[in-house]
Design a protein around this nucleic acid. Structure first.
Length: 280
DNA sequence: AAAGGTTTCAACCGCGTTCAG
DNA sequence: CCTGAACGCGGTTGAAACCTT
């Protein structure tokens, strides 16, 4: 039992669905000449068989002359992610900071592109924190969980996901299961000889990329604390432990957002070599 | 070439807020 | 202050476009 529909929401006998070019022309002509005024009265005055709400939406999302068309620029993408991390799903507020972009457009772009990119890179799109969820990536479900060792294995892979999101990417000296269980990562020359410990305890609250510690040789580098997925991904109840600081996590974050295809193929190679029996 | 599946995005729906009477 | 109408926003839907097999 909800609120009974208001006058504007009843829309008896009014047209719905996609707008025709003729309707667009009528709406545009009317607003050009008279301004929109009351949206409620506009359709009748403009000769449109639509509700005021539909006219307002069509104007603000499509017909408005200052609307910017085309792909989002890397700067715009960066702005959206930054604002979303602090504002959440406040699409209208985010849109107000991106001239020419509508809240609907940003919302759609987020849901169809950015959200998926963040997930693929191990970042929870709602909290903007790193994920530890055992279901991430989803194919982890296919790993044979015959022992706690295997479970620990998966946790380690989760850590490695985070590591791979750092820049520059380290390369593996072992890609076998044994190498994963007893990992020594071969790092770029700039940070060579830094050994990554397999320590699941959240030691540092802020992720410090290897570059920060490159003056330390043969030192244990502790991976950051991890965060579980949000409820849409997991119903687990593990406390959050670290905020994902994009500027530290990936100095070339812009590039990371725009194109992560190389990253994913890199992963396929690693996982198929490490778990040849699993159906990845 | 075609069928089925997936993705995209314009448009709708419903709720909370604002405002005029 | 109260009420109801209009507005604005975020979530959701579904048709069309695109992709895969």
């Amino acid at each position: 039992m909800g609120r009974p529909p208001l006058k504007d929401e009843r829309n008896e006998g009014l047209k719905k669905g996609p707008w025709t070019p003729e309707e667009d022309e009528k709406l545009k002509d009317y607003i050009d000449k008279h301004g929109h005024g009351s949206w409620q009265l506009l359709p009748r005055r403009a000769g449109l068989n639509r509700c005021g709400k539909s006219c307002r939406l069509r104007w603000s999302n499509y017909l408005r002359p200052d609307i910017k068309r085309g792909n989002f620029s890397p700067q715009e993408i960066q702005t959206i992610v930054d604002l979303h991390s602090s504002l959440g799903n406040k699409w209208a507020m985010i849109a107000s900071r991106l001239p020419g972009r509508t809240d609907n457009e940003i919302k759609n772009y987020w849901n169809t592109h950015l959200r998926k990119k963040l997930l693929r890179n191990g970042i929870d799109p709602q909290t903007h924190q790193l994920l530890t969820d055992l279901n991430f990536p989803p194919n982890f479900n296919n790993f044979p969980l015959s022992s706690l060792e295997n479970l620990a294995n998966i946790r380690l892979l989760g850590n490695i996901i985070q590591l791979l999101n750092s820049n520059p990417l380290p390369s593996f000296s072992h890609t076998t299961l044994d190498g994963i269980l007893n990992p020594t990562l071969q790092l770029p020359s700039s940070i060579a000889n830094v050994t990554f410990s397999v320590d699941y305890k959240p030691v540092c609250n802020t992720f410090q990329p290897p570059e920060v510690q490159q003056h330390v040789t043969n030192a244990e580098y502790c991976l950051p604390g991890l965060t579980p997925a949000t409820s849409e991904i997991s119903s687990g109840n593990v406390g959050h432990s670290s905020i994902c600081d994009y500027s530290l996590l990936n100095q070339n974050y812009e590039e990371f957002l725009v194109d992560d295809e190389n990253n994913s193929s890199f992963w396929k190679d690693i996982l198929s070599e490490s778990f040849p029996s699993s159906s990845l």
